[in-house]
Nucleic acid binder design. Structure first.
Lengths: 349, 349
DNA sequence: CTGAAAGCGCTTACAG
DNA sequence: CTGAAAGCGCTTACAG
C-alpha cells in the first residue's frame, strides 16, 4: 500500500456548509471566468454586451445571490453602516433613524441598528462588535461615552458622527441641538408668563443626560434671573403618557406651590394634560404644562401644549450626509452643526 | 538585466486597505500560532491557562478587533439575523422588534434591521441583499410577499419566521394573530352595544392589508348578523392622531348616520377622541369610537378608549425563540402560533 | 474586453 | 494542548 494515499484522499466538505450557488458556478454555467461574472455584476459597463446578457441570464436561472462577506473581505469595503441609539421605544430616535435610513439607502448603503438601552457598557460592546464588520463609518447618538468607546472609534480610523445633542467636544463630527439652551429658553418662557415655582419632571435622569441638560439649563436660568424657584421630580420609568398622568396628581399633592411643570418630553406632558382633563384640574389656571419635542399630538390636546420642536428627521439626514461625504473623500462643509430648535408657545402655559 | 525581475518585485498593498491589527499580528506578538489565538478567543477552554493569559493581554495591548467577515466566511456562520418590517414609525413594529432584540441578543445574535415602507418590491430587494450576508435565519413581518421573495427565502434553506398576522399558509414558521377575527370581534361588540351604522377609518389600505383584513372581518360579521350596515373611509397617510382628528369631523359631516367608528389603530382613535373633546362632540353619545392595539394612551383619554390589545412584544419574543430553536437544530414545539388578542371594552363605546 | 494568480483574515479538519 | 495546510467566495492588480 502506498503510505501517502491517506493524504491524497479528497477531504470531506466542511460540515454544515451550505451548498449555495457560487460565483464560480455561474461562471462555469455561462462559460466565462469568475472574474468576468464579478465584473458583469459590479461594473457592467466593462463587460461586452453579449457576455453581460449571457451572465445575467445565468444569474437569474441559477438564483445566484452574491456572498457579501466574501466580497467585503476581498475588497475591504462594506456598505453597511452601524447606527447606535439608546432606545427604539422613543419616537424621537426612530425619527432620526428614518432620516438616516432614507439618506444612506439612497446612496446604496444599509443600516445595522443597535440599541444600548441607555447603558454605556452595552454601547461599548456594541461599538466593538459592529466595528468588526469593518464598516465605512459609524453613526452614534450622544456625545457622552465610556473612554474605551471613544478610543475604539478613534483607532478604527473611520468617520464618526455623533448626533442628537450639539456640543463642544466630539470624536469626529457632530450634529444636534443644545439641550442646555433648550431648557433655558423654556424657563425664560415660563418666567415671562409669570410662573414662579417651576417643576421639571423626568424619568431615568441618571442615564438620560440630555433630559438632565434641559433641567440644568432651566435651573441655571431661573437662578440667574431670580425671583422664582425650581424643583426636580424624578419618576420611575414607564410609558410616557402613564408617567405624566400619575406625575401630575402626585406633584401637585407633594408641592402645592408648583404653578408650572416642564416635562422631559411631550408624551409625559400629554399624559398630564389628559389627567388634568379627567380630574378637572385647570391648565394653565392651576398649573401650566410644557413638553419637549414637538410631536404632532402636542397640538391636538386641549389645551394645546407648549413645547419645543426639535428637527429630528433633519438631524438624521444631516448626520448621514456628513458621514457619506467623508466616506466619499470630500470633507463636509462643517464638522459640527447646530440644528437649533423652536419654542412653540401654546395655550397650556 | 534579468527580465524576470519585474515579476519578482513585491506587490503594492491593495489600495485603500486599512492596516488594522490582525489575528496574525496578535499571534506574532504573543509568540504563538494564529490558530491558537483563534481558539483562545472562541473556545478559551481548549487553550492552556498560561497561553490564554498571554494572548488576552496581547489582544488588549494591541486593541485587536476580530474581523467578523473573515470569521463568518471561514466558518459559514454569522450571528446577524435580518429583521424585515414595513415601518419603524409605527410603534407596533417597534415593540415587536424590541421583543426580538431582547431574545436574540441574549442568545448572542445581532439584528440587522430593514424597513420596506410597505413596498413589496423593496421587501424583495431587501431580502435578497440580506441573504447575501448568509444569515442563520430570517424574520419578516407579514404573510404576503411577492412570489420571488418567497422563492428566494425558500431556496436560501434557512429557517424563516413570518410574524404579525396568523394564517394558514406560511413560508416556514408563523406567529401572530388573526386580524380578520379581530375585526369580527370588534363588530360583534359594537352591534351588541346597539350601534347600527359602523364606519371603518384607515389609511394606506392598499398596502396595509392587515388593516384591510380587520375591515373585512368587521364587514362580513355585520353582513352575517344583519340589521346594520358598514362603511369604509380611507384617509391620506399622516401622523395617526392628526388623521383621526380630521377624520372624525369629516366623517360625521359626510355620513351623519354613522353612530360608531372603528379606527385602524389607537393613534387615530385617540386623535378622534381629542377632536371630539375640543369640539364638544359626545363620545359615545353622538358617535362611539374604537381603536386597535391597546397602547397605554388608549386608557388615559376621556372617555377611555375601547380597543383590542395585541401582545406585540410577545410576538417578537415568540418569533425569535422559534427561529433560534431551529437554528440550534431543535425544531420548535409548534410551527405556527396564534397569540390571540383581547377586547378591551371601555367607555368610548 | 477577458483571464490566471494571489490574497483578504479568519476557521476547519487533521495530525501530533 | 498546539500547529501547518487548505479553504471560505469573492476582488484586486497585472497582463494580454
Amino acid at each position: 500500500m502506498d503510505p501517502s494515499s491517506a493524504s491524497l484522499r479528497p477531504r470531506e466538505p466542511r460540515r454544515g456548509r451550505r451548498t449555495a450557488v457560487t460565483l464560480s458556478d455561474v461562471a462555469a454555467a455561462a462559460g466565462v471566468s469568475p472574474i468576468t461574472v464579478s465584473r458583469a455584476l459590479n461594473t457592467p459597463e466593462t463587460v461586452s454586451e453579449v457576455l453581460r446578457g449571457r451572465i445575467n441570464a445565468t444569474v437569474e436561472a441559477l438564483g445566484y445571490v452574491p456572498n457579501r462577506m466574501a466580497g467585503a473581505l476581498a475588497s475591504a469595503k462594506t456598505r453597511v453602516i452601524p447606527v447606535i441609539v439608546p432606545s427604539l421605544s422613543n419616537v424621537v430616535f426612530v425619527e432620526v433613524i428614518e432620516g438616516i435610513q432614507e439618506t444612506i439607502e439612497a446612496a446604496g448603503y444599509q443600516m445595522l441598528l443597535g440599541s444600548t438601552d441607555y447603558d454605556l457598557d452595552r454601547e461599548a460592546a456594541l461599538a466593538s462588535t459592529l466595528l468588526g464588520w469593518a464598516p465605512p463609518g459609524v453613526l452614534l447618538a450622544g456625545l457622552r461615552h465610556l473612554p474605551r468607546t471613544a478610543t475604539l472609534l478613534k483607532n478604527a480610523d473611520v468617520p464618526v458622527v455623533e448626533f442628537m445633542e450639539y456640543g463642544a467636544r466630539c470624536i469626529d463630527m457632530n450634529v444636534g441641538l443644545s439641550h442646555v439652551r433648550a431648557g433655558a429658553v423654556m424657563a425664560a418662557h415660563l418666567l415671562e408668563r409669570g410662573y414662579r415655582r417651576i417643576g421639571f419632571v423626568g424619568t431615568r435622569m441618571r442615564d438620560d443626560y440630555r433630559a438632565r441638560q434641559r433641567y440644568e439649563g432651566m435651573r441655571r436660568h431661573i437662578a440667574e434671573v431670580g425671583g422664582a424657584s425650581d424643583i426636580l421630580f424624578e419618576y420611575p420609568w414607564g410609558p410616557g403618557q402613564e408617567v405624566g398622568w400619575h406625575a401630575l396628581a402626585d406633584v401637585l399633592a407633594a408641592d402645592p406651590q408648583v404653578d408650572a411643570l416642564f416635562f422631559a418630553n411631550d408624551e409625559m406632558a400629554v399624559g398630564a394634560v389628559l389627567r388634568a382633563q379627567r380630574d378637572g384640574i385647570a391648565v394653565p389656571g392651576r398649573v401650566a404644562v410644557a413638553g419637549f419635542n414637538g410631536l404632532p399630538m402636542s397640538a391636538l390636546v386641549t389645551p394645546a401644549l407648549t413645547t419645543i420642536t426639535s428637527p429630528r428627521k433633519e438631524i438624521g439626514k444631516q448626520a448621514a450626509t456628513m458621514l457619506l461625504s467623508r466616506i466619499n473623500g470630500t470633507p463636509p462643509v462643517q464638522r459640527r452643526i447646530d440644528v437649533g430648535f423652536v419654542l412653540e408657545a401654546r395655550s397650556s402655559t
